[in-house]
Design a protein around this nucleic acid. Structure first.
Length: 422
RNA sequence: GGUGAGGUGGCUGAGUGGUCGAAAGCAGCGCUUUGCUAAAGCGCCGUACCCCAAAAGGGUACCGAGGGUUCGAAUCCCUCCCUCACCGCCA
């Protein structure tokens, strides 16, 4: 959520920053400003009435204490009471309208974000490793998975419908081992605290981390929208500190969490749906940082490197791209995507998205910290998916396939997996 | 799921209809005195929002949340959430 004061004080700046995203968000700024002006007018009138009532009510108390007649005063206050009731109604309506508007306005792109309209304009920041030299024919993960019986899409569909996957045998083992490998890497070498949060969260949490109200159709909700299956661990983990004021000495908070993630993927049927690339339920190991505004850029770079370490450790060729202003997500100011090379698809595949939300989520969650001067300020929140498991899995087996049809297990993973080939 | 007890400022804890934004204590900040650690006295010590060009200043709201009763609610009534205890059921 954007700061209403920033909008009030620098509307042109806000509009021009929003315009770099494309779309008509700039027009909404005028709507917000109009509602804000009206709201404040109402609030001032309401406060005046409240002050009058408070004063007169005390007079009534005093008069009664002295045994004097107060019926005239009471009549006066009764009238003010009616006025207050009406003003309260109007003020509440204006507040709600303002909040609804604000909740649907995206974050301002980071000052240094590359300007662009579509994903095609995302610059490549850096590239690591090289495409593996594989003997022809190069098989994709679907074929490899079928040959090695690593997962069973048909039977998963029998259980839950299309878009679900069931890992089996060595595949299930590899999946589990990747999770543990990542958790160990981030806790032991990068200083993250492991948490294992609930997967079901209240509606408030989904609003806090910007999934709602805009993307409700992509979420699995139930109990009349009161509860949701988390689409990413970012939701429960970031919300751990919702409505808290953290001591500055405790920042940055660094969390790593493994959770399954649930997404409807509404409207994406047929796109990238081959195999296990896009499914409704998948495992993910997520990194979350909560920092001060001063340190958020530095921490964001470090977070991205931490996520990259996973791919490096597994010897997977990847590149880092930065999302341009037209492609960056609704709540994010700045995002790096990690794209791993998929030999089977002969393309780069997004496995990890490292975003800096600045204070956009913190304002929604009322997540603050006490700075050196004792002032309460909003935190900055960052997260990077420490990698979506099925995609990592796919790239891993494709990149390590051997001429004889077996799959080599990367060295770092062997102690976890217990074998060198699959 | 049932029954009971509760939710008050950073913490402890008073307060059952009218100068209560809220006693007192602790912690914290400042000053004074004595002074080796330390002690005593005094003062300050919540958040959000609104008005004001800004500062100064003024105002409103907030005692788990939301409604209601009333001229007036921390205080009375209703609903919900949460915590604790016990009982039941159960992986």
């Amino acid at each position: 959520m954007l700061d209403i004061r920033l909008i009030r004080e620098k509307p042109d700046f806000v509009k021009s920053r929003l315009a770099t995203r494309g779309g008509d968000d700039a027009a909404r700024i005028d709507d917000v400003l109009a509602v804000d002006a009206e709201r404040r007018k109402l609030e001032t009138a309401l406060q005046q009435c409240n002050a009058d009532r408070k004063r007169l009510s005390k007079e009534i108390g005093g008069a009664r204490g002295r045994g004097e007649d107060s019926s005239e005063l009471e009549e006066k206050v009764r009238k003010i009471g009616d006025e207050i009731a009406e003003l309260v109604r109007q003020t509440a309506a204006a507040e709600e309208e303002q909040r609804d508007l604000l909740l649907n306005i995206p974050n301002l792109p980071h000052a240094g974000a590359p300007i662009g309209k579509t994903a095609a304009e995302n610059p490549i920041v850096r590239t690591w490793g090289e495409k593996p030299q594989l003997a022809a024919p190069v098989l994709d993960h679907v074929t490899l998975g079928a040959q090695r019986k690593l997962f069973d899409g048909e039977r998963a569909t029998k259980l839950s419908g299309s878009g679900f996957i069931c890992f089996t045998g060595a595949g299930a083992r590899l999946e589990r081992v990747l999770i543990q490998f990542m958790l160990d890497l981030h806790t032991r070498e990068h200083g993250y605290l492991e948490v294992s949060p609930p997967f079901l969260v209240r509606r408030d949490c989904m609003v806090g981390t910007t999934q709602l109200p805009k993307f409700e159709e992509d979420m699995y909700g139930f109990e009349d929208g009161a509860m949701f299956l988390a689409p990413t661990a970012e939701v429960p983990v970031t919300n751990l500190h919702r409505a808290e004021i953290l001591p500055a000495t405790e920042l940055p908070k660094k969390y790593v969490a493994y959770t399954p993630c649930f997404r409807r993927e509404a409207g994406s049927a047929g796109r990238e749906t081959r195999g296990i690339i896009r499914v409704h339920q998948f495992d993910k190991v997520e990194l979350v940082k909560i920092t001060t505004p001063e340190n958020s850029d530095t921490e964001h770079e470090a977070l991205t490197l931490d996520a990259e370490r996973v791919l490096q450790s597994l010897g997977l060729h990847y590149r880092v791209i930065e999302l341009c202003t037209g492609d960056v997500g609704f709540g994010s100011a700045k995002t790096y995507d990690l794209e791993v090379w998929s030999p089977g698809q002969n393309a780069y595949l997004e496995v990890s998205s490292c975003s800096n939300f600045e204070d956009f989520q913190a304002r929604r969650m009322n997540l603050r910290f006490k700075d050196a001067e004792g002032k309460n300020r909003f935190c900055h929140t960052l997260n990077g998916s420490g990698t979506a498991l099925p995609r990592l899995f796919a790239a891993l087996i494709e990149s390590n396939q051997q001429a004889d049809g077996s799959v080599r297990i990367p060295e770092k993973l062997q102690p976890y997996f217990g074998a060198s080939v699959l």
